[in-house]
Design a protein around this nucleic acid. Sequence first.
DNA 1: CCCTTTTATAGTCGGGCTGACCATAAAAGG
DNA 2: CCTTTTATGGTCAGCCCGACTATAAAAGGG
Lengths: 242, 242
Amino acid sequence: MSGALRYDKYAHEPFAVTVDLAVLTLRAGALHVLLVERGQEPYAGRWALPGGFLLPDESAESAARRELAEETGLADVSGLRLDQLRTYSEPGRDPRMRVVSVAFTALLPDAPEAHGGGDAARARWVPYDDARELAFDHDRILADARTRIGDRLENTPAATAFCPPEFTLGELQQVYEAVWGTPLDRPNFRRKVLAVPGFVAPVPGGARLTGGRGKPAALYRAGPAATLHPPLLRPQREGRTT
Amino acid sequence: MSGALRYDKYAHEPFAVTVDLAVLTLRAGALHVLLVERGQEPYAGRWALPGGFLLPDESAESAARRELAEETGLADVSGLRLDQLRTYSEPGRDPRMRVVSVAFTALLPDAPEAHGGGDAARARWVPYDDARELAFDHDRILADARTRIGDRLENTPAATAFCPPEFTLGELQQVYEAVWGTPLDRPNFRRKVLAVPGFVAPVPGGARLTGGRGKPAALYRAGPAATLHPPLLRPQREGRTT
DNA sequence: CCCTTTTATAGTCGGGCTGACCATAAAAGG
DNA sequence: CCTTTTATGGTCAGCCCGACTATAAAAGGG
């Protein structure tokens, strides 16, 4: 380590600060996560969440947005919503030195194929269940991200972030089913979604025809609500003591 | 700033990492927060949330627990639950240098008077509404903490953390009313609390007599549940577009 | 000592939401 | 033309909820 920082009357060791991103999308009805292949030690050749170091004059949110653009080549990063997940600071989570990492979640509609860029040797969308044995403590970060997203689906319109600008209620239901891992009753789901003011709004005149196999579904857009009242609670989670 | 850290092929500026604590309690039916008076610049003489720097070999959670013990002299810090709130990393939040701060919340039963220690010139319990114009961005952290705690009261037994080991349902209701800022109907509150499995359990044989003004209330202890099913939702929050 | 006040607790009742269904509509495919 | 598939509409009983009334058991005051 290089010199200690002088601050008040203490001498403080410096820390490296990074961001990690759990970027989730839905492909073919299954939850996928964006991973990059590490090019160097430690964990060379292992898959990891995209991320990187904070620059001297940017916030963690800015760094997360920059890294996302650099490592994935996504175009519309500016309009994308990033949510802080939590911060991981255990000593030893990076074998080389003290690294404190601020983790974020981001949700995308069905994704353009990612092309690795920046530090990442390669970038790929991986089915959530196949994303195991990641570098560092990224297994845990990813699990925390899924838990958090599942909770947010109950109280916020976050599910619409997985959908294109115009979507059917069937697509929205697929989001809930994929994230919660539970099948839902279609008529009841529709009734509850439409009962929440500001969750979704029908697009003025349209229905979707050519693609569908059955009766064409009505199209909706995300509504103005920031929170869902009443919430869309998951089916019976029993009271876990854990 | 002193030397930059060498990491991978980049040279990274070092950051100072701190923890800040929003420690809340209930006194006389009102929400109070633990504040310390700053002894030095910047913000000398201003009130601030307790906190401090991470040591080289401790996690943010460990640092938060240590700082809480040092600055308040509380005895039972080991059994106390700390929850990560979020991390604040905007450049300029500390006028001297880059400081990234991980904020925590902690909930206490009616509190032993805090005696300042460690860095803090003085430590005091301050009514939540009087805690304004704090140092740094602590106004915002404190507001975020209250929002978070309010949400947690809906889905977790967090409210019991404000109560002594044995408490009445009236005391528990005061917690909800103080945090949410809303009066609740007593019979309905009782019915809902008792309907949640594992939220509270009656203490084997007791009722509380001497202190009370009216009919003595039954005593309860916190139950084993980690989440509340069904949740105790706040009264009609309208769907805010914000 | 009685009566009022205060707090705890029990119960009631109608409306609304929920889950489990059943029914119908509108397309594609053979 | 008939089957399959998906979307959408409707029903119905049960539960939860908010609002409210009633009763019980203590303290306090005249």
